[in-house]
Amino acid sequence: MSRAAPACLLGLVLLLVLLLALAPAGGIQALPMTRPFLPPGAAHPFGTDDLGRDMLMAVAQGARTSLLVGLVALALASGLGILVGVAAGLGPVALDEALMRATDVVASLPTLLLAVLVAAFFGGSALLVALVLGLTRWTVIARLVRAETLTLRRLPFFRAALALGCGPWRLARRHLLPQLGAVVAPAAGVIFGGAILAEATLAFVGLGDPERTSWGRLIAAGYPFLDDAWWMWAFPVAAICLTTVLVALAGDAAAREG
């Protein structure tokens, strides 16, 4: 068995635990200030920003918001996708057709544009952005789960369970859901990383949550100092890239091993 999935998961968990452990209480305004524009060094591994705040602490604080958006969007998208996919795969033809047409409609919606509109009209709340992303990105999981369900329905153990009088939801709980991890894992990694990138995009253009520090807000704050203080935007960008890559690798490795 390959060790890629445990290694990626362990690396991701250690990264997130380290960032969350370093994050002090309060917002970025609560961070102590020292000399501004200090380059990365022993005292400040990520340097300091234009106000003298430690960038390592700022990146750690930004992890809270960015990871919250990713996890909420992933939980919502996974729950809806699995529910719709199982219902379409196990239900009658009419239900399957109706759910798949609804899936096509949602999949055709411009997710990022909807998030921009919601943030512009209702404010850039991190939870609200996560809900919009989760409610529009479940379609990929739904299609994968439906296809896997239709495949499993043809297998002997599934037919035997039906012949013994096992109901559809009991079938799903005991025989179907345990088989779906390898199918859902890669799509879950894409949704998680996409949610973090979407939140960063909104924050970069000024539509993020004004009360929370996020990686996107840090990138936007550091962009005007691109030439003189590269570390102000480089480390938040690196945090986004590293997190999304680790999640994607873990999902792909879990699918191969499953």
Rank of each mutant, 00 (worst) to 15 (best):
L9E: 07
L152M: 07
A107M: 14
G124R: 00
A161K: 02
W215G: 06
A60N: 08
M232G: 02
G216F: 00
R137E: 15
F122P: 03
P168H: 02
D50V: 15
D104V: 01
P168K: 03
A200V: 02
V59A: 02
G216R: 00
V205W: 01
L135F: 15
E97C: 09
T244H: 05
A195C: 03
L218M: 14
V105W: 07
L131R: 02
P186S: 03
P178G: 13
T213Y: 01
L71N: 05
F235V: 00
V13Y: 09
T103S: 03
V93G: 09
S214Y: 08
T103C: 06
L180R: 07
L128C: 03
F46H: 03
V140H: 01
V247E: 03
D54A: 11
W169N: 07
T65V: 10
L135M: 13
P168C: 03
F235N: 00
L38D: 08
A120R: 13
P178S: 14
A250K: 01
L74F: 11
L150C: 12
P45L: 07
A115G: 14
A255S: 09
S108F: 06
V106K: 06
G81T: 02
V69T: 02
L128P: 04
R170D: 06
P224D: 13
C8A: 15
I28F: 12
G216N: 05
L68H: 05
H44K: 04
T136L: 15
F121C: 08
W231A: 03
A147F: 07
V84D: 05
G181I: 10
I191V: 15
E199M: 02
